[in-house]
Design a protein around this nucleic acid. Structure first.
Lengths: 206, 206
DNA sequence: GTCTATACAATGATAGAC
DNA sequence: GTCTATCATTGTATAGAC
């Protein structure tokens, strides 16, 4: 009873996650275009080129499929944030680089980012249990760290509130992200992004 | 044939828009909790205490019901923005007041604001045709006007880009709005809001 | 204007063969 | 692991009485 299903070879589950990844890819596309609630499993499996039970075999439910998409997105986000944490340079340079990194990350994965964004701003009921505050907490943690380093180096006023500056950075990140993911509004290019960080440092007063 | 239905009195349609307003109110509540796509007309009419055909008599479809909600929200938003445009004071005071006004507007109508926010960040397909850029354009227009007035009065650096400052303001508005409408993240209080505007003027450098 | 009763399509999920 | 065939449920919308 213990070795009834592992009598093949050394590889336990090496057949092909091709079906699984095809389903994930199709799910992102349909969730993005229709929204999670309005997306039908029928359309997802047709786009993936598999039958319906394959989805339920690999994920168990439509809800679990969305969870899998979000968890993969959260891991990619966390990797970028960790990289931003250890980068060297002035606070201004590091915050600019953080914005550029996030800009590039979202640009490379627009559909996934749109799904995550949409679910984050969507309703609570009928949604999978997913702690979206990880994005917020990770962002704030990294920005606060950079700000405190900048204060220690004398680049940022010692009397300034790190959490206020972190909020301003979240605002900058929010505004360019929104314009990157939402159709119909003009995108913020990288040069403008750099100027916004500069404006936060230097002030509008002049 | 011309006067077959207006032979009653002077009042043409004064019976009671009670059913209509009850439906609008119930729609906001259900759209907020379930999201537009997952909201069922059955739940809406039950909450409103009317039967299903009453909804289709007054609005024609579930989609038109959402449109009615959004249009009312857009009118309330436009009124606040017009008021902010004509307010007197320094640029700093006017931008602070603008933030406070929007904060209060959203606070008084959290469910409606959540619905509008959710649809704005939601999918395109299956949604009513609604030009969400009116919010963006109105905000930018008002902020730019205040910034240009501030530059003319010497309160804001003449070399600063009005559109950059407008983007920063949109970021501030975005970050406190997001934290006001989304459950699970700490709200930004009014005092912090004032400090953020101050930070935009004075800069983090100190 | 508002109701009861219903038409009819589409949904998420499963049983059982292979 | 993947399929065909099917289930029970729920969805939006409407016909017709009052």
């Amino acid at each position: 009873m213990a070795d009834t299903e592992k009598n093949a070879a050394v590889a336990p589950a090496e057949h092909d996650n091709q079906t699984r990844s095809r389903l994930l890819c199709a799910a992102v596309d349909v969730f993005d275009r229709k929204g999670y609630a309005a997306a039908s499993v029928r359309e997802i499996v047709e786009l993936a080129g598999v039958a319906k039970p394959a989805l339920y075999y690999h994920f168990g439910s439509k809800e679990a499929l969305l969870t899998a998409v979000l968890e993969e997105a959260a891991r990619a986000f966390a990797r970028k944030m960790d990289a931003a944490m250890t980068r060297k340079g002035t606070a201004r340079e590091r915050l600019s680089a953080l914005c550029t990194d996030l800009h590039d990350l979202f640009q490379e994965h627009v559909p996934v980012a749109r799904v995550a964004h949409s679910v984050f701003f969507g309703p609570l009921e009928g949604m999978p249990k997913f702690d979206f505050t990880v994005f917020d907490r990770q962002s704030e943690r990294v920005v606060r760290q950079i700000v405190e380093d900048g204060q220690a180096a004398g680049e940022i006023s010692a009397t300034a509130s790190p959490s206020d500056i972190a909020l301003m950075m979240m605002g900058i990140i929010g505004v360019f992200t929104m314009r990157q993911l939402h159709y119909g509004v003009a995108k913020v290019d990288l040069a403008t992004l750099q100027r916004l960080v500069g404006l936060l440092f230097d002030g509008a007063r002049g």
